[in-house]
Amino acid sequence: MIEVRDLKKYFGKVKAIDGVSFSARDGQITGLLGPNGAGKSTTLRVLYTAFNPDSGSALIDGLDVVQDSLAVRSSIGVLTHGAGIYERLTARENVRYFGQLHGMSGHELNARIDELVDMLEMQDFVERRSKGFSQGQKTKVALARALVHKPKNVLLDEPTNGLDVMATRGLREVILRLKDAGHCVLFSSHVMQEVAALCDEIVIVAHGQVAASGSPDALRNATQESNLEDAFVKAIGSEEGLL
């Protein structure tokens, strides 16, 4: 469960986010949709404790991201934007490293990694050193690394960036399985179709503020548009950055 209330973060005069509020429930997929530079990544960065907000608050399972940042980090799994993995470690070692950082070890950890390898179909390269991995393989490793400690809340920043069609389909299935398992999934994207296909709840972000939010149906109704894309354009007030 993620609750964001009137979150603000300025970088000098740039208002990266300027009063964002929304909530993401367990067992649901929530999409942060918006053009590039709308404030999606900054919102996520505050949520995964990389940035401190200037004002407002964000709670994850009732824990404040600023006050209880260590506890928050234990309860979230994060796929950062352009997630890098360690090239001189094998895929398994990359995942194991993060598992250990969450206090896992031994049989429990290995069993969990095997589980993820099956789920993400990493069998072919799990024992290989990561140098030379394709973008799809790297994303899988980064995703396995984010999920290794079975986090209740999963935050994904533009997860389909750089993935081909097959890899994107695979990722979509993984996200749906996380939803079925009762996780709270929050992901950002600037790709409308992706959000429309997956999300139970859409939060449209533009100029650092929430332009509209709700289920896809609710959004269509609110904007009086039959097509979600038109609803999106209407909500953000322009066609900028729309892909």
Binding site: T49, R73, V78, T80, A83, G84, I85, F98, R145
Partner: peptide, 9 residues
């Protein structure tokens, strides 16, 4: 990989 590392507990 710094950002993922910094999100660890």
């Amino acid at each position: 990989s710094l950002e993922p590392l910094l999100t660890q507990p």
